[in-house]
Design a protein around this nucleic acid. Structure first.
Lengths: 231, 231
DNA sequence: CGATTGACTCGTACGACGTACCATACGATG
DNA sequence: CATCGTATGGTACGTCGTACGAGTCAATCG
């Protein structure tokens, strides 16, 4: 029984191997590594969607055997975790100094968050069931600090943070899943029109035809921030 | 090639069959039907979670062969669709007359929505990728009508509806997935405390220990409705 | 120097899955 | 009795995640 990949995996170790192993196959793939696996998994997810990621396909793309992956990775769940985390990279707010425009800061961070997830739509549906990684925690911390600085009462703080989280998650997830169904939306609206006797109001306001997702996100966020602002 | 279950399935047909087929197996299962399949699928999902639902297990519980299911149902996706829909049952608002308390009406409907989904936590993670069924449309219609009656400008209406939708979806999904991880939350908070140098603000406010989900939902909803209310 | 060890790769195999295909059974209709 | 629509389910195929254990190779040690 080997120790296997027991936690610490020391990214730096490989650095020298470039000059250490030039003898072997010159034109073939570089050696496997967690980083390479994750990067390829993200490629695959982007290209084929959530069901498109299988360990076999992943190994194929990496030019390796399937079981070799399991040296670097615990299981498929682990691959998902790492892929999601790599998408949410978040710099530790270097300029969180004392920007006077707290509202702009919040909007900017949340829009960046949403944009990153929408660039990889599968991440939205994967995120909710993951543990909170450092990237997410960093974003929550930034929110908390900024809102506190803006004057939100301590008693309201947690509720305010979760509200924003909820809103962003819901909006992103909705956007990501409705994206797939361009034709479905037409069908839905047609069904709606056909049943307009039952749903007259949303038919009239063309709720399902509205395509300005970014604008809607921004406006909804404004509503919420209006409600949050200390009176 | 048979016509198979081509769309219309006319729930009423079976009504008389109870008195028509009493001859056969007295003690065994009643005949298969869409309704019975869906009900059993919900049971299974409640008991075993989302991965616990397999066609074989479903057939076992129903006391039938696996392939028999496919007479009543197109495929597994179909089962998911039907299960989600059955959870969101929504009466067509009989009292949507002229209640003076529009805000109470909205809160009540959204809390009911959330409660129904949380009673079957798997439904939250399944809903976003489903087409809009009549139950959801009915709820959106109710929202639309109520907000309009409350004085929300037509230009703001769609953004307002989506905001509420996003909030409810995000809150419910978050709640449903964090539910599983009672121990994980302890671990997360411990990791947080350990790293409190990096996340001082959310550590201080005990963001991850706050257990009052219902209250947080309600308060966040109030924030949003405050922002939505016509000034 | 040869033996050992530990990091890493991968072929084979197993059990579980969704479901296509086809044979069957039965009540109603001709 | 023959035919047909409704309904059931056994067998089988292809694919999945991954357990197991045999293999390779560089570094280390006696």
């Amino acid at each position: 029984m080997v120790a296997k990949r027991s936690g610490a995996r020391s990214k730096g170790d490989q650095r020298i191997s470039v000059s250490l192993q030039p003898v072997q196959q010159a034109s073939t793939e570089p050696p496997l590594s967690r980083e390479r696996i994750v990067a390829t998994a993200v490629e695959l997810l982007d290209a084929q969607g959530i069901d498109g990621l299988t360990m076999r396909r992943l190994a194929d793309r990496l030019g390796s055997g399937v079981m070799s992956l399991y040296w670097h990775v615990d299981n498929k769940e682990d691959v998902f975790d790492l892929a999601v985390d790599s998408v949410l990279e978040h710099r530790g707010s270097p300029e969180t100094g004392e920007s006077p425009d707290w509202r702009g800061d919040v909007v900017h961070m949340l829009e960046d968050w949403r944009a990153r997830m929408l660039r990889h739509p599968w991440s939205a549906s994967l995120l909710p069931r993951r543990a909170l990684g450092r990237n997410i925690l960093g974003r929550l911390e930034m929110l908390s600090k900024t809102l506190s600085r803006a004057g939100v009462a301590d008693a309201d703080l947690n509720a305010a943070i979760w509200s924003l989280w909820n809103y962003v998650m819901g909006a992103t997830l909705t956007r990501a899943s409705f994206d797939l169904s361009e034709e479905d939306r037409a069908a839905a609206q047609q069904r709606l029109t056909h049943l307009s006797e039952h749903y007259p109001t949303i038919e009239r306001s063309r709720l399902l035809l509205d395509n300005d997702w970014d604008g809607a996100f921004r406006r909804g966020l404004d509503f919420l921030l209006d409600g949050l602002s200390p009176r």
